[in-house]
Design a protein around this nucleic acid. Structure first.
Lengths: 208, 208, 208, 208
DNA sequence: ACGTGCGGGACACCCCGTTAGT
DNA sequence: ACTAACGGGGTGTCCCGCACGT
């Protein structure tokens, strides 16, 4: 028997979302072409317009349904209930750098950061969505650091929220660096510099 | 007497460059409109295409003749021949944040960073120019840190080049943060977190 | 007990017709949107295409089932069997002007006239339907004038058919005038000028 | 030698205006296609956009530069300085009906009336322009009637402004009638009915 | 050195109609 | 009787770049 219409519709919607994510990741939101999206998704303009009210709504949905979950899976879930956050954070950075320099995706930077840089000043819908994601990211890291302080793995004199801000901000900077330098060595150097900074926050860290 | 033709021509070219800088700063390079540029510059398409070979060449010239000098004046010149770089760097960060949150320009981020994020993956001319600028920036900071180490103002165990990478990278991250959060307090917090990190690199710094 | 299926279907059809009437009245037939129609009717595209073969058939049905009955009720029924038509016609004009300038509908003109102006040259189905309605209108007025002549209320030297043509035609002109002038005073003036003309057709009219 | 650029530009602009006038006359403003306009004008979208800021501006320019002058030439100039307006008005009506039923243009109605009916409720720019033209038309007819009263060719008890309103309004109605009936005989009958009404306003008219 | 008319193309929008399903 | 996903086309917009002219 053929699949239910609802299932087929959801699949089409998802294909459109995925194709839009890739298109906007590569070319930016404004320069991204809806024609390219529908072609890549194997759909038509009619289908796109049926599922989304326009380019803007599609972009917002990409943030909500693709970018957000990606962030959660890659950066937030690993910190869930962790009492010793440093190895986890360092592992995330190192794994990301290794994966993306290997895959070639890295020259396009971080999808979330790209959208934030491009669209935040121009569209409040994008800005508020991305601001909320970044705030959640900072909060998750800060919580983990605070748990580490209670568990004795993080130095008690560290300002957890300020450090979390620096961690998130550095992540943005690292992808940006990779974009313009296109030099894996420099990206690795930057990642290691950050890991060293994180190391200095550990409870048993020797000075510096 | 009236100005020489060459002077008038240069003035037109400069007005076009300035207008293009503002337009691309606000709307990005791809979404920026040449019509808007010539209108703002009080010139015409003919003048623009006389001075520049097209949109791409105009963008490259903006990097060479506007963005580069701006970087030198704001970040590189202050470090010239300095033996105690920390106060200078911290001063640069604090002044920039104070100025830009005051002027309202900050919501558009850093012009150099914007172009680097948008155009590096798409246009080698942009990428190489911006990469060279960022490399020079890192080198200047690293040199200043090394001079500080020789002068005894910077801890000798610091990796000057890695630290310089982190400084430049954090600067990118701070502007990015300001863009999506539009929260001066968060920007200030980020700047202060970085200043604290710099403080930890001083020769007389207590651990951490 | 619940209503019979046939009744429910008729209700849906009627809601679609009413919504289409309003939509075409406001935006014209060609610029009118079927999406807006189904939304206003609380129905779906499927229902619309179940009851009507397409936009054209819907438009024709609006003429047959909404516009036509409206004409009969407002202009034809009041003249039924009347021997002194002038007060009736004058009353119709005055009542229409009073009602529509009060309700705000008048800026959109006369639904029947709108469709006739827009669609007659483009679609023979519309044209023939509207032509038949206008012919019936003229005939009804002409008959009433002829009855008035037999009854002695209308001057015998009046050409009843020519006068009827002028009456109907003036009605079109009055709505058109209201549309572009959006001036109730001008509309009232026009109506009164026509009433004065009608007055001059009465059997006991003083010259002029 | 080749014509001056300014001349060529004006010619292009005029070709676009003429083509737009015909297109909007035949299909209405909203349903009229700019592609058809540029094709008919032998121009391109770029030229159209250079001369006009968009479809709306083109429509307004058609009213200002084509429809208005047409009205002046056909209806206003003939009344200039005339002391016996009736023959002139009657001649205008009869000539128009003869010309247009002969040429086939009449099935599309009156260009000015078409735009007024379609666009007045939707666009204030159209409405105000067309309202001004119609007001000027009414004023010109009223002035001519008043001059006729002073010269003794028009009955002194006639309300010149009300009669002018009726004349203009009837003109609209006559074209509307022609559109839906597509019957030259009916149009002629309507025109003659109006001429008879005008006859009744002459100073030496027998009552009625 | 600079102004202007213009070419050609791509884009987002959105609409009408159909078809497969309930 | 009614729903909703979807097809394909056509629209107005508007931009970048060129080729004249002066």
């Amino acid at each position: 028997m053929s699949p239910s219409p609802a299932t087929r519709a959801d699949a089409t919607r998802q294909r459109l979302l995925d194709a839009a994510f890739v298109e906007f990741f590569r070319n930016g939101f404004q320069a991204g072409s809806l024609s390219a999206v529908v072609t890549a998704a194997g759909a038509t303009k009619g289908a796109l317009f049926h599922h989304f009210d326009g380019k803007q709504a599609l972009g917002w949905a990409v943030v909500d349904d693709v970018v957000g979950p990606l962030l959660v899976r890659r950066w937030l879930d690993p910190l869930e209930g962790v009492d010793d956050p440093m190895p986890v954070l360092q592992g995330c950075f190192r794994r990301l750098i290794a994966e993306d320099t290997g895959s070639g995706h890295w020259v396009h930077g971080c999808p979330m950061n790209n959208l934030a840089q491009e669209m935040s000043p121009l569209d409040e819908g994008f800005r508020s969505r991305l601001d909320a994601l970044y705030a959640r990211w900072r909060a998750t890291v800060a919580d983990a650091l605070a748990r580490g302080q209670r568990a004795g793995t993080v130095r008690p004199d560290v300002d957890a929220r300020a450090a979390a801000t620096l961690v998130v901000l550095s992540q943005q900077g690292i992808w940006g660096t990779g974009k313009y330098s296109q030099d894996p060595a420099l990206m690795t150097q930057a990642g290691e510099a950050l890991c060293a900074y994180l190391e200095s926050l550990r409870a048993d860290a020797s000075p510096g």
